[in-house]
Nucleic acid binder design. Structure first.
Length: 771
DNA sequence: CAGTGAGCGAGCTTCCGCTTGACTT
């Protein structure tokens, strides 16, 4: 007989709590939700007032049967799932599935894993809040209805295996709309004018001062006109103003802000951050990593205070209570912080150490004093012009939290105004060494990274800490978006300088717009997005989640019946589903580009069975149209007639090598060179399939042959098809287009022909028995 | 890994939010 059984969601949490509670308590974990809607036929009985059909999935059966054993053996069962909508539902499902009796079941909640908080919770048990459970059921059922009714429409009207949902479809919409802003963006330029002044200070030392003109000139003529006025002008300081200001630290990490900072500072992907954080959590080094709360426990605040006092001194301490700003936050946990703040560093791999360091610094800095900053602006008058030059400098008079941590930004701003200014006086005369006017282009809107997309979703109240990373993966897995680097463009910019009373003009080339690790929408993402917006704008709407969240809140306080809410939504939604299925045509995203000037045939771009294609000639006419695949990265959205016509120039024969033809073509995996039946990929961003020449193609073939050679560990005279190769996961055997794992005990260098044959045979046999 | 693009049809795909393993040929 067990006296007390406590059930929590996470096994790591169970371990910690068991330590606090002692031997009268057995603590088990249920690993999150233990059952979910059946996958067949929606899992909801629509005609039976939306009765959910819950089933325990296969991978949860083991956990459930173990918990059942424990529960029947226990005097009191304490349900300690999180204090939020999902946690309440988990507690309710546990009651139902484990058949718990109310008289020996208690529901308890705590927001922080400290002994006090848990003892306190046990002193204040309550029952299950059925209203809150109903709010969760409404959330669950609505998401299933939306996801499982919209997705099949896409299979029918666009392409199989696509998906749509309340969260993912909005994420894609954000990316598509941003891409359109970038496509339609027209850069304008203006001249930024910077002067370099020289003077001698009181000690006789030569000093310099850089200052920027208070305005930028939109044209070359105006810039020239201004610089002309500056020849033989006199310069005098007519103003020095200093303005004190303060900077405050950012709040402790939530899931979303941790993902953002790990991306900016450490270059981690969103899922990488989560898996490293998971390891830190499981080894007891940090608190729970899926949270939307910026709150720190009083215990933690006390330790942070001590650490700051010891490391930096009393005047660096400023204890703060942060309030969450994000919509729909449920705050079931603390903010993400080190479990033991006194530990400045930890054991672990490089990634773990770096992420821990980031969390430590952010936590500590959040409880430190404001930084005091003095901003100085020096105004310099030009005797021959109305404009002024301004020199700005910044001096940190008290570093405060900046001693530990500085939050990064997403924009790549110009390094400006950060430097200290040399000491100068009012009315001081300056000598102008030179003035440089540089043409500056306005930057286009920023593309999203994984992390900035998470930030945006959080601002909109869409998605939860546990789903940010999976959502980002889903929209990439469906092919809606791709995360990649893309090269920028080089462009000419105009430079005008005034030095030694002479004005000189020159052209400079600038490399701009290179993208690294950004999210780009694909054609299929754009087509799905446009289709959903045309037929279901109200759901793909940025405010849809906020709207239904309000209704869930009403359900949670008992003011609204959950099935009534679902019925109001579903009856109009389902009507739209039916009319869309009946009326709308198959959507191929076709766009007409114009006529081919050579043949006079019409040119279209659209989605084909295997991807986006260009079509030359109308399908109505007698002659069959020609087709050509679009190159990766080309969008139906903005491809030009000229670019489309180029595509029909492939495949091209560009010469011969070793007596065989070199053919450039475009395949499933991008542009290639074909030679003797073998394929060699062109280098992305370097080679253009339409202009590549034989020399370069031969070079590529050589590189590939060399790389293949390096992969070979062993070959056998008995059979040229059998190879021992070095691969991503270590050495393996390749035979007749199939790969085989080498047992760990065996040395790949010493494998003989018969050894390999044996491995292959053994594998093939076991493979057969499995199928 | 790599050329395709007519049309039909069976059977498959899919949501969001809680949790952790399993484990690469």
């Amino acid at each position: 007989m067990i006296e007390n059984l406590v059930i929590v969601e996470s096994p790591a949490k169970a371990k910690t709590i068991e330590k606090f509670l002692g031997k009268d308590y057995t603590v088990q974990s249920c690993f999150g939700h233990i059952r979910d809607l059946a996958k067949k036929n929606l899992g909801i009985e629509i005609k039976n007032n939306y009765q959910p059909q819950y089933i325990v999935s296969d991978d949860k059966k083991k956990v459930v049967s173990e918990l059942k054993k424990y529960a029947t053996d226990s005097r009191i069962v304490w349900l300690a799932s999180d204090e939020d909508r999902e946690g309440e539902a988990i507690a309710w499902h546990l009651c139902e599935v484990l058949k718990l009796k109310p008289e020996n079941t208690r529901r308890i909640v705590f927001h922080e894993i400290t002994e006090n908080a848990i003892r306190q919770a046990i002193r204040e048990p309550r029952g299950i809040n059925k209203n809150l459970v109903n709010a969760q059921q409404a959330r669950r059922v609505l998401d299933r209805l939306v996801g499982f009714e919209l997705s099949p429409i896409l299979w029918k009207k666009i392409q199989p295996a696509l998906s749509a949902g309340r969260v993912q479809s909005v994420a894609v919409r954000l990316l598509v709309e941003r891409e359109r802003e970038i496509i339609s963006f027209k850069a304008s330029s203006a001249y930024r004018v910077v002067a370099l002044f020289l003077f001698t200070d009181e000690a006789g030392e030569k000093k310099s001062l850089k200052a920027e003109l208070s305005e930028r000139f939109p044209t070359r003529e105006e810039t020239l006109d201004f610089l002309g006025k500056c020849i033989r002008a006199n310069y005098k300081i007519i103003g020095i103003s200093t303005r004190p200001s303060t900077k405050s630290p950012a709040p402790p990490f939530t899931t979303s802000t941790l993902q953002q900072e790990a991306s900016r500072k450490l270059g981690f992907s969103v899922s990488q951050t989560m898996s490293v954080a998971q390891r830190l959590y499981e080894s007891g080094k940090i608190t729970y990593m899926r949270t939307d709360s910026v709150n720190l426990s009083n215990l933690a605040l006390g330790t942070v205070k001590k650490v700051i006092e010891q490391e930096y001194g009393d005047k660096y301490v400023k204890i703060r209570k942060f309030k969450t700003k994000s919509k729909g936050a449920q705050e079931a946990h603390e903010a993400i912080r080190p479990t033991f703040i006194a530990n400045k560093d930890i054991q672990g791999n490089v990634q773990e150490k770096r992420l821990y360091d980031l969390i430590w610094k952010r936590t500590v800095a959040s409880q430190m004093s404001d930084a005091q900053i003095e901003k100085t602006t020096v105004t310099i008058e030009i005797s021959t012009a109305d404009e002024n030059f301004l020199a700005t400098g910044e001096v940190i008079t008290f570093d405060g939290f900046l001693k530990v941590y500085f939050e990064s930004r997403d924009e790549e701003g110009e390094e400006n105004g950060r430097a200290m200014l040399p000491p100068v006086q009012l009315q001081q005369e300056l000598t102008c060494d030179s003035i440089t006017a540089t043409e500056k282009f306005t930057p286009p809107p920023l593309r999203y990274t994984e992390a900035t997309l998470v930030k945006k979703l959080e601002e909109l109240g869409i998605g939860r800490p546990s789903t940010y990373a999976p959502t980002i993966s889903t929209i990439q897995n469906r092919g809606y978006v791709v995360k990649e680097d893309r090269p920028g463009i080089t462009r000419e910019l105009h430079l005008i300088t005034l030095k030694d009373e002479k004005i000189r003009e020159e052209e400079k080339t600038e490399y701009a717009g290179r993208e690294k690790g950004k999210l780009f929408p694909n054609n299929i993402g754009i087509i799905v997005n446009d289709f959903l917006i045309e037929h279901f704008e109200d759901i793909i709407n940025y405010h849809f989640t906020a709207k239904i969240e309000k209704e869930f809140d009403e359900i949670a306080v008992g003011k609204l019946v959950w099935t009534a809410m679902i019925d109001a939504f579903y009856s109009s939604f389902h009507k739209k589903v039916e009319t869309t299925l009946e009326s709308s045509e198959k959507e191929k995203g076709e766009r007409y580009l114009g006529e081919d000037p050579v043949t006079g045939k019409k040119v279209f771009v659209k989605m084909g069975r295997y991807g986006p294609i260009a079509q030359l000639g109308d399908s109505q006419e007698e002659e069959k149209p020609k087709f050509a695949s679009l190159i990766k990265g080309q969008l139906i959205e903005n491809i030009t007639l000229e670019e489309a016509l180029e595509l029909f120039k492939l495949p091209r024969i560009i010469g011969t090598f070793e007596g065989k033809e070199l053919v450039i073509g475009l395949g499933k995996f991008g542009p290639y060179v074909r030679h003797e039946g073998k394929f060699y990929s062109l280098k992305k961003g370097i080679d253009d399939p339409l202009t590549i020449e034989a020399d370069r193609a031969i070079e590529l073939i050589g590189e590939k042959r060399e790389a293949d050679q390096k992969r070979i560990i062993k070959t056998f005279a008995e059979d040229p098809d059998l190879l021992v190769l070095r691969g991503r996961y270590g050495p393996y055997i390749s035979f007749q287009k199939k790969n085989y794992k080498i047992p760990r005990k065996m040395d790949p260098e010493k494998l003989g022909y018969s050894d390999c044959k044996e491995i292959i045979e053994r594998h093939d046999k076991s493979g057969k028995s499995k199928n």
